[in-house]
Design a protein around this nucleic acid. Structure first.
Length: 480
RNA sequence: GCUCCCAUCGUCUAGGGGUUAGGACACGAGCUUUUCAAGCUUGUAACACGGGUUCGAUUCCCGUUGGGAGUACCA
């Protein structure tokens, strides 16, 4: 056996490859990552693909990609060997089988020959647990039947009475009576292990020091601990995280909204925001600050401050947080994220500099990255129509005359910066003896086609003199 | 059903034997403003209930209720 270096922290994220990364999974992975990183430890990714019937093509790759997108990088795992591999359970079958045999030989497990039908029957008859029908088959007989090819599973022998107590890092002391624990299947007929065998064997072999996982695993933890005891292995620390919840308080699931981190990414959420948000579901550093980078979270995180109650995944707050993180980024940093969106709209030929200006004017007005594309087409295309409501409200009979006058003034304007346009407009308004608003609103409508948006004068500067003048003329024709 | 877990504003949460129970999102009002946002100020809003323990419980204990998870040859 390998020397167990008790001091070094090794955590893992052990998802089953279902095809996408669940946001709850992201949170679990994140906590395990943060905890490892802040302790100079190692964060491991292990793929739990022991259910052949649920195989999904390309799922592992998608999982890894989503994790890496979020910045939760693993130190050991598929493609990153750390001398504890392989990190994909379907490649470790022989290991589990050997351990199952050891359990069998030492009398801590037994072969069960019950058919699925029989099990089904006893269940419909009301049995909550396996009736231990095969538990007393003599070892030799069982071996013989198995060797003869009779299909069987290996089941864990749960002690007849007593209870199992353990300490959970977030929940404190928890105990279960053995009488309420099932003789869990450890090795299936197909030779694959169940989660319960695989997780214990791997966590031990991979020298995991802290098992950080969702609360749904709390009820099966006693089985795992029993396994550690049967094998004579020392226990890792357990930390069961509160669940992420739907608005109706049930376990967060598809069907009640987006659940895959890929979905949020595709919708234009920043990874910084998603990570920050998800980190605060079930944990917080205690102060009043809420905006943290991954690095800052690494510094602040602590298992002691993880809460016990489930947390509703609240999109409204995520939206706000996304906006905040967007404001934290420079316009140039946002460019690579926004540019493809603009390109999709057919605006790819505009310069980076131009796009950066647009981003600067728009970023406080959008919630997610994807909003950029729809929020301000007028920076890239001529307005084809004019917002009806804005038109009735702001385009009065006298507006044409006013705008015409403004057009004349702007034509003579050499410097077309925001302040220059503003002074030109205000002095025109003064000359006309009207309030600036009488010019501002029609001008906005004329050059953008809509009645809301960024600072009019900055918008004019970014669009440039030529386009502004042309749009005024066109609008004059169309709106008069 | 059984087992386990949980319980502060609608939501995320801070706090903790004596507090005006704090912050954030959302919502309302106001300010700012050329609009929309953003920002600022401000308002509404919570300790599930019942027993203890205590001089004093929202806080500690017990119970009730409520919610959740687990209960597969799935993870």
């Amino acid at each position: 056996m390998k020397g167990f270096s008790v001091m070094s922290v090794r955590t893992r994220f052990a998802p089953s490859p279902t095809g996408y990364l669940h946001v709850g999974g992201l949170r679990t992975a994140l906590y395990a990552y943060l905890f490892a990183k802040q302790n100079n430890g190692t964060f491991i990714l292990r793929i739990e693909d022991t259910d052949q019937s649920r195989k999904v093509e390309g799922a592992t790759e998608k999982l890894i990609e989503a994790l890496q997108w979020a910045g939760v990088d693993y130190d050991e795992g598929p493609g990153k060997d750390g001398n504890h591999g392989p990190y994909i359970q379907s490649e470790r079958l022989a290991i589990y089988q050997a351990h199952a045999v050891r359990l069998l030989n030492e009398g801590n497990a037994y072969r069960c020959f019950c058919t699925a039908e029989r099990l089904e029957q006893s269940r419909t008859a009301g049995a909550a647990m396996y009736d231990r029908h095969c538990r007393n088959i003599p070892f030799d007989e069982a071996q013989k039947r198995s060797a003869a090819g009779e299909p069987n599973v290996v089941r864990l022998k749960i002690p007849d009475d007593g209870e199992l107590k353990f300490h959970d890092e977030v929940r404190g002391d928890v105990s279960f009576a053995y009488s309420t624990i099932d003789d869990q299947v450890l090795l299936k007929t197909d030779g694959f292990p169940t989660y319960h065998l695989a997780v214990v064997v791997d966590d031990h072999l991979m020298e995991i020091s802290h098992v950080i996982r969702g609360e749904e695993w709390l009820p099966s933890t006693p089985k795992h601990i029993l396994l550690y005891q049967y094998f004579g292995w020392s226990l890792p620390k357990f930390a069961h995280l509160p669940l992420l919840l739907n608005p109706d308080k049930t376990k967060l699931s598809k069907r009640q909204g987006d659940v895959a981190v890929e979905d949020y990414r595709a919708k234009g959420y920043l990874k910084e925001a998603l990570v920050n948000f998800v980190a605060f579901l079930g944990w917080n550093p205690g102060g009043e600050r809420e905006l943290f980078s991954l690095q800052e979270l690494t510094k602040e995180f602590s298992i002691e401050r993880v809460g016990k109650a489930g947390a509703v995944f609240n999109i409204e707050k995520l939206n706000w947080m996304n906006q905040q993180h967007m404001k934290l980024k420079s316009d140039g940093e946002l460019l690579p994220l926004v540019k493809p969106l603009f390109a999709d709209k057919g605006w790819g030929s505009f310069s980076d500099e131009y796009m950066i200006h647009v981003i600067g004017l728009m970023k406080e007005r959008v919630v997610v990255i994807n909003d950029f594309a729809g929020a301000c087409p007028y920076f890239f295309e001529e307005p084809v129509s004019y917002d009806e409501a804005g038109r009735t409200k702001n385009w009065k009979p006298e507006s044409s005359g006013h705008l015409l006058k403004l057009l004349e003034t702007l034509k003579t304007q050499e410097l077309f910066t925001a302040p220059a346009v503003e002074t030109a407009l205000r002095s025109t308004a003064e000359g006309l003896n009207i309030g600036a608003g009488k010019l501002i609103h029609p001008l906005r409508l004329a050059i953008s086609g809509v009645s809301n948006g960024p600072s009019l004068f900055h918008m004019a500067e970014v669009l440039g003199k030529e386009i502004v003048l042309r749009r005024i003329s066109v609008a004059l024709e169309r709106l008069s």
